[in-house]
Every structure is written in structure tokens, then in C-alpha cells.
Amino acid sequence: MRIRGLELAVGFFMLAGALALLVLALKVSGLTLSEGSRSYKVYALFENIGGLTSRSKVTMSGVKIGHVTAIVLDEDQLMARVEMAIDSNVNYLSLDSSASILTSGLLGEKYIGITTGADEEMLQDGDFIEDTQSALVLEELIGKFLFNEATE
């Protein structure tokens, strides 16, 4: 009898653990079971990525459509090559889409915003986004401003 109660308690403990994992997966990290994690890779070269990091989000009109998976320095172009994973159901980004590094709020995190163009062809896995706009760097802005002042 004592053993039964004990086994029951242990069973509940295991169940609570499994349930906790489920909550962490679905509710906390927003993992969705149906969609899976299927995505395709798109690349973009930036002059300056500012504070962009891997796992930063990629959005379109403010809606999250993917995330940054890797950032490396491209040795040929001497620019930052950003690898993004775009959700595979977002398959309507035209080949001439543009990507810019934006900031949420004044001090907020950096993320990539994508705007589509007019091309008939769509971005495929492994394609490069040609039209990019780098992060705004505060120091450069100030520098430009001062330079403009001086030349006037």
C-alpha cells in the first residue's frame, strides 16, 4: 500500500516535469507544432551591421518572418554577410527585395526589415538580397552633421 502511494507520487512528478517541458516549449518559447521549423536560407551583404546578432528577428511590415542564423565577414567583398532563415510559408519575397537593418525604439534591439520589390521572380533558398541598407550608426550621423556644418 505504501509502495502504491509512492509510485503514484513519482508518476505525478514525472508528469509535472513533462508538462513543464511542454509549457516551456509551447507557451514560453512559442514553438508551434504544426508549422515545424521549415525555412529557407537567404543572404545579404551589409556595409555595417551595427549591433545585429544571430537570432535577431527578420520582419516584413513589422511582422516576424524569420531570424538571423549567422553573421560572417565576406572576404571578397569585405562586407558582413548575414544569413537569414525565412519561414518557408513566406515564399512571396521578390528577387529585388531590399533589406535594411532597423532599430526598435531609440535604444532597442537591431533587426532586419524586408520590403519586397516588383520583380516577377521570387527569392529562393541560397539567394542574395542585393539591395541592402546598413545600420544607422549614431557616431557616423553626428560626424556627417558636423562635417556638413563645417563646409557651409
Binding site: 516549449a25 507557451k27 512559442g30 537570432r55 528577428k57
Partner: peptide, 19 residues
């Protein structure tokens, strides 16, 4: 509160690493 959390917490990076 929840959407911010879900956007920033990644299952394989955060939850699994914590585990």
C-alpha cells in the same frame, strides 16, 4: 508580455541549453 517572451526565447537555444 507573452509575445515578447515568445519572440526572444528560443526553444533549442535557451530551453534545451538550460536543460
Amino acid at each position: 508580455f507573452w509575445s515578447n517572451m515568445q519572440n526572444s526565447v528560443d526553444f533549442s537555444e535557451d530551453v534545451v541549453n538550460g536543460l
